[in-house]
Design a binder for these strands. Structure first.
Lengths: 199, 199
DNA sequence: GTCTATAGGAAGATAGAC
DNA sequence: GTCTATCTTCCTATAGAC
């Protein structure tokens, strides 16, 4: 492992940490487990990061924002408002079904971060980025289909982001995929009703 | 502390554990911190509980189900469907505003439990109890106001439980009470639209 | 920068006197 | 049952040779 810059090592450790968290949970991501996953000696950790908290900081930053791109992409296709909304939601939901542990990690990280003064700000930003993603998806939808949302956009964005977050958390905990799908359909129908033709 | 039955001690330890968790988070609730909070010696722990996991089991069971009663009570008053729904939601939300740390603990406990094979079943039951609470509130509302819900009740119950859970988690993480209130109002309006006169 | 070795402490659980 | 003292293990972080 000689001749690898500390910057590259930092990235490798962040990626290794995410893999360990997906496999064993945030609690399982000890410095030892992370360096082992990355194939580095324990001592490498502390000249890449000042502390474990600094690693977590980078992990949260790396995970935040992965979700948005996937959904925005699905909105580019053809079809009416309903088709696009369902395609976007479907893409998100398929990811939840395929990688539940990855999503579990995001909830764990939030709870972990919210309790540490140094990380609480990051948890806040994590959820603000969800709100932003929701806002931008709704904006893109309305624009491409020539409609306007009847509630104020910030309120509707919060509503939909919370709804999807809540449905995901419930599914991850309780595991009824069929019921989750039905509730998601209801969500799509409900949101679709909140439009009027654009001016 | 002599002459206190092991059963009573168990309850005292569970209550102490909840206090510690509210103050310092689930991660702060070590056996040492819990017995200190309860004013007991460390050794007392392991003839009250076989393990720390057994304590957590009791903590989750004690916390689950506290929410339902408060909301059902508010539904007994007079008023139309809208008034009652808003009163019930308002009562829940006031509790979130007054005791945010208590609610944070429930999210932390879920994540903690979901990762341990021995406790995962309890996390599942915790969320099933949310679904049940949601179902019973919606049932009571419909009956007392002589209306029927247009979506199947299990779907609507899942929808509303997730929505409220998601809004709560977002508020606890991000902290915008005003925006949360606005989104909650939108939620109430939306749900109210899903009725038709009873047969 | 890189690594080995270890410090230093906190965790859950137990042994054994009373 | 009750408690003190202790075992064992695992953690984060550092010291110091190369």
């Amino acid at each position: 492992m000689a001749r690898v810059s500390a910057d590259v090592r930092r990235e490798l450790l962040v990626e290794a940490a995410i893999r360990v968290m997906i496999r064993d949970g945030v609690g399982g991501a000890t410095t030892r487990a992370v360096v082992a996953e990355a194939g580095m000696p324990l001592g490498a950790f502390h000249y890449c990061f000042r502390s474990k908290e600094e690693l977590l900081e980078n992990v949260i930053a790396a995970i935040t924002g992965h979700t948005l791109d996937r959904m925005l992409e699905k909105l580019k296709g053809p079809g009416g408002l309903g088709d696009k909304l369902r395609a976007g939601l479907g893409a998100y939901w398929q990811h939840v079904l395929d990688h539940p542990d990855e999503h579990r990690v995001t909830y764990e990280l939030t709870q972990y971060a919210v309790r540490r003064p140094g990380l609480a700000e990051l948890a806040k930003r994590q959820y603000e980025s969800y709100l932003e993603a929701s806002t931008r998806v709704l904006e893109a939808l309305a624009e491409s289909c020539d409609v306007t949302w009847t509630p104020p956009l910030p309120v509707l964005a919060r509503y939909t982001a919370s709804l999807i977050d809540g449905l995901t958390l419930l599914y991850l905990t309780e595991g009824d995929a069929e019921a989750a799908g039905a509730a998601l359909d209801l969500a799509a129908t409900q949101v679709l009703g909140l439009t009027r033709p654009a001016d």
